[in-house]
Amino acid sequence: MGQADQHHKSALTPRNDEMTLVFPAQPMAVRQALKSSLTGLSHLKLSADERGIVEIVLAEVLNNVVEHGYAHHPGGIVELRIKRCGDMLNFTVLDEGVPLPCGDVPKQPIQTLEGPVEDLPEGGFGWSIITQLTRQMRYVRSDVRNRLDFSIALADTRIG
């Protein structure tokens, strides 16, 4: 953390099955981080469905960091660690932005979509999507750092 440069450091290999990406908290850098993550996972030969789940979850988690954690600190740095453990992908996201409200992952009630079109929500979907697609969500705030750990189960992983 702190001294990260503008480039992604990708190092997931079949040998260690681990990857770390460090990037600035900006929307286009998040786009690139998603692309790098999926490239780094390509040797796992994930199904299209699994790739979609990984990309959706990472997009929501990382956009939250950019839009909320670092809302007033656009030069912030994000670190994403991915490790495969058997049929689980374990993720860790680290940032030094503001803590999550209430000190934990929001437990959102499912939004109502009833009523007229003009009352439909245009946001607030992120944590609902994340919690539906992940397991073992754990948030820790220590000193100035946020750490979010979560896992995605791989149904039918084929190691290439």
Binding site: E55, A59, V117, L120, F125
Partner: peptide, 20 residues
Amino acid sequence: DFIDSSGLGAIVAAMKQVGP
């Protein structure tokens, strides 16, 4: 190929802009 929740929100907003 891909939308995130911000993109979804923008699509909902586009529908609301169109009006009833």
